[in-house]
């Protein structure tokens, strides 16, 4: 059996120089697409992901109308050039599954009951993919929903943790995801302290399972503060905002 590639060096640093619990660089921008009701763009490591929200709008086809709440549609889609080998643009089984878990991660935050008989569409387009693209997509999609002014209980933010060289680490990149021995994407509503997405693969002792899970939540909270900053930049531009003229 070939010796597995070393992903953590003697100095405790990972291949890209990060410590075990360090995030890759992340940047977020809100309100980037003119046509969309809400949008956000995220750079997370090499991930480049655009999220757009349309709606609430009329439901087509009509038979999908929900009488008491909005229908939230999600599509996670990877551009053909987003990966090393060209990806067939038709949705793969992986993308269909991820679209479903992303929807189930976002719906708990949205007051869908405030928009009966309508559709709210969330499009997540991966322009370049790296490890953790689904949690990056969720992080951007939740900002796009807030930007669209959809009533939300909380933002949703994600981070993935996993195991490389038998060590629990935060925020796996592409190589670590492929060569490592486990990936655990987690999404939370940080104020409500609720988990809205959890997927696990790899082999985790009970102790490592808890360590990776709790690390993913803690790192998600770090990303949450970046989400806040991105919204403040878009909407508050640092000015104090008294409202004398409000009717």
């Amino acid at each position: 059996m070939p010796e597995p590639k070393k992903l953590i060096g003697e100095d405790g640093r990972r291949l890209d120089g990060r410590r075990w619990d360090e995030l890759r660089p992340i940047s977020l921008e809100v309100g980037v697409l003119k046509n969309a009701d809400g949008s956000a763009y995220i750079n997370w490591g090499k991930n480049k992901i655009m999220a757009a929200v349309y709606g609430p709008k009329e439901v087509h086809p009509k038979h999908q109308v929900l009488p008491d709440r909005a229908l939230l549609r999600t599509r996670y889609h990877m551009a053909p050039f987003s990966v090393d080998e060209r990806k067939n643009p038709a949705p793969s089984r992986r993308e269909i599954e991820i679209s479903k878990v992303i929807r189930e991660a976002l719906v708990p935050a949205v007051l869908v009951e405030d928009y009966p008989r309508t559709a709210i569409e969330v499009w997540v387009e991966v322009l370049q993919s790296d490890g953790g693209s689904r949690v990056a997509g969720i992080t951007a999609a939740s900002l796009a929903l807030a930007d669209a002014g959809i009533n939300m209980r909380d933002l949703v933010v994600g981070c993935s943790c996993g195991i490389i060289d038998s060590t629990v680490v935060a925020d796996l990149d592409d190589t670590e995801d492929k060569e490592g021995s486990g990936d655990m994407p987690v999404a939370i509503m940080p104020n409500l302290n609720q988990v809205t997405l959890l997927q696990v693969d790899g082999i985790y002792t009970r102790e490592n399972f808890q360590k990776a899970f709790e690390l993913a939540i803690a790192k998600g909270r770090e990303v949450y503060s970046m989400q806040r900053d991105a919204l403040a930049k878009r909407f508050f531009s640092g000015e104090p905002q008294p409202m004398e003229e409000s009717a």
């Binding site: 935050a109 807030a146 009533n151 939300m152 209980r153 909380d154 933002l155 509503m189 940080p190 104020n191 409500l192 806040r228 919204l231 403040a232 909407f235 508050f236 905002q241 008294p242 409202m243």
Partner: peptide, 10 residues
């Protein structure tokens, strides 16, 4: 009292 808020803020 006035403050800037985002969804989820108390």
């Amino acid at each position: 009292q006035r403050k800037q808020v985002i969804p989820g803020d108390v």
